[in-house]
Nucleic acid binder design. Structure first.
Lengths: 393, 393
DNA sequence: GACTTATGTTAGGCATGTTAACAAACAAAA
DNA sequence: TTTTGTTTGTTAACATGCCTAACATAAGTC
């Protein structure tokens, strides 16, 4: 196809326009890691001359570099390529309520630098303290890792709040509290995303949902949240409120009037523990002091603890059933402090399947880095959009 | 781009391969109706020579035909083109539980033929009776309208049951009951879709949701159903169960155990009227005999009727809030016998917005033809996929 | 050292578009 | 009626991005 109308002579862009094949090759290297030309050519159905030209273009820009050779059982060695320093790097920040985690990485997710900062006190909501910590970590990281790894293409920040698209109503969002002490850098793209959505992304790239295009990641702990992935895309919603399952109608039953946010209140650990303490039998000694202790006791066979945990698991099963009734994702991944308890899984699985339609239910196995890794992936995606100036839809 | 590798010489397809531009031109004519070359060229950013070539290709195949000329205020007249007879036609059937509605139309939605058959008795579920009616209507329609309108490209059928993708588990689906008496034709593509999803599609093409990429169509009547459109695509789910809001966890409240399908049971008109009859005050005379009567009385100011309607509307508002909490569609269209009552709208609007996040709530204004029109659109989409053998993703 | 096999490059060609220039058809002005 | 300017459509030349075919290079095997 003639693309002459897209990059007319004299209208030259800052980044030289790449051929579609070159873009595809670069994407492949970003997504699948180092590879030889024949491998990429096969994967993308490109001929050897085209591979030659594409690699040439990319190498000249520093977007790609040769890192070795690969010898098959027979024949000439193939050159091995990977994403080069000229492609630049991204910074990912998980601005959590207890920690700030930061990673600087290449577009193909090679870690260049990482820091973790534990916030002095536990803050339940994003606030100035977090903003200050982000600013500090950003400044510190910007100082290091300047060892010729190319331009910083994007900075992604995961926030414990709703995040709304640029044009939309953001007054009620709290997302702007991030910028009370942190001034976003001028050059790179800024990518904001809700932290639960980030965890869902990580689950798809590294976790149980690897390769799945449709699933829901449900986080259950102090609060409730869901990250929804349909057809491989995050569902955000007009108010960034998709997945705000804490706002499911609750209590929803004959004779009851639902209260806004009551699902989150009732199913969050705080109210759970309050119920546990109230109903704790005298003869069983002092009740567990927090959710961790409750689940620990239940896992060790303590009867009253186990009973509470199973009732709670059934409630979560109902929650999952409601999600299935609406989007039928086929897979639900449970995360968060409560969600990852092994006791919960079987109950949730049977209750959800009994109430609605067939769903796989699995427990997240990613550690506390899930959120940073997720926002890192989103930052890389955005960086790619910038580097490979999108032409075709 | 060189597509030579896609249509090698000697590998000729039944349908001659069209250039990408020609396909785009055809799509434009299908979507936007008759137009002149300059108009299409401007819309698609194609040069005049390319338009010339594309129209040439399409005219030679009969996919497009000249239907007149258009004179601007100055200069030469432009030829006016529209979709031609060679492009073929589609048949759309709404296999409803009380009616079978059938339309035969061109790809640009010009009606060629239409029939309506009222089923003898009201069948609450799809069954053999419907299958027989579909078979008869199909045969009758196949006899007529053979006046040279080209091949029948696709037959779309809207079903009052879950519909599942080809590979998936379909045992529990009832969708196969359609084929007890109706043998699908050999040539054309068969498109099956749930009838509520079809109504949602119609809402987007002709109704309140015109031009909206994200919205939910919620049907409230004897039963409950939702058609979910996100990013302009229908969400079906792994079991075809997306939108089965009758299976939301219900009753969902402290001390209650949810029952499968209870939301549908409780919020359907049958249980509603049972509650109305039970609570009807002696002094108010005999209770309304059906939902229609109840809403009619309420609209005329009858106090007990109004009270019941408003309580029901509040329940539906809670239902809508749950949908918003999960997908945050930004717009909810209410349909179905109960859903289109004008008394319901304001209550649903305020309750839903109070419980979750900002949503527009509107009432459907499409008549009983909505479902056929929706499945017709889906059949046309499929027909296009066939006619323009998809090459690029 | 000749043969086989895989990798990479060069040459030529084709498909799909573009601009530039011209021809044709029309309305309005002279 | 002729001229003029505008819009539509066609023809010619050329640009791009890919392909296949053929050749060159580098490895292991007999």
């Amino acid at each position: 196809m003639g693309f002459s109308h897209l990059s007319r002579p004299g209208e030259s862009f800052s980044a030289a326009e790449l051929t579609p094949s070159a873009k595809a090759v670069f994407r492949s290297l970003v997504a699948s890691g180092p590879a030889t030309r024949p491998q990429i050519g096969e994967q993308l159905a490109l001929s050897r001359p085209t591979m030659s030209a594409s690699i040439g273009e990319l190498e000249r820009l520093g977007y790609v570099e040769k890192v070795g050779e690969s010898q098959g059982s027979l024949g000439r060695k193939a050159a091995l390529y990977r994403v080069g320093a000229g492609a630049g790097r991204v910074m990912a920040i998980d601005a959590g309520s207890t920690h700030v985690r930061l990673r600087v990485a290449t577009l193909d997710h090679r870690l260049l630098h990482s820091r973790t900062y534990r916030l002095p006190a536990s803050h339940r909501l994003m606030n100035e303290e977090i903003s200050r910590a982000v600013a500090e970590e950003f400044a510190a990281a910007a100082g290091e890792a300047e060892t010729g790894w190319g331009p910083l293409r994007a900075v992604g920040i995961a926030l414990p709040s709703r995040v709304v698209a640029d044009g939309a109503e953001r007054a009620a969002t709290r997302q702007d509290e991030l910028f009370t002490h942190f001034a976003p850098p001028a050059g790179p793209e800024l990518v904001l995303e809700n932290n639960v959505n980030c965890a869902a992304v990580a689950e798809r790239v590294y976790g149980v949902a690897k390769g799945r295009d449709d699933f829901a990641y449900i986080q259950i702990g102090l609060k409730l949240g869901m990250g929804l992935m349909l057809s491989g895309r995050l569902i955000r919603g007009r108010n960034g409120a998709a997945g705000e399952i804490g706002h499911l109608a609750y209590p929803f039953a004959p004779g009851h009037t639902p209260v806004a946010g009551e699902a989150e209140t009732y199913l969050g650990t705080e109210m759970l523990m309050r119920r546990v303490r109230q109903a704790w039998p005298e003869k069983a000694g002092p009740p567990p002091e927090d959710a961790g202790a409750l689940f620990h006791r239940a896992e060790n066979g303590d009867a009253p603890a186990r009973e509470h945990v199973e009732r709670h698991a059934a409630d979560i099963g109902a929650l999952v059933a409601s999600c299935v009734a609406i989007v039928d994702p086929g897979l639900v991944v449970l995360g968060g402090g409560v969600g990852t308890s092994p006791l919960i899984l079987p109950v949730v699985r049977t209750v959800a399947n009994a109430l609605s339609y067939p769903v796989d239910v699995e427990t997240s196995s990613l550690g506390p880095d899930a959120t940073v890794l997720g926002i890192e992936k989103l930052a890389v995606d955005r960086a790619l959009d910038v580097v490979l100036v999108q032409t075709s839809p």
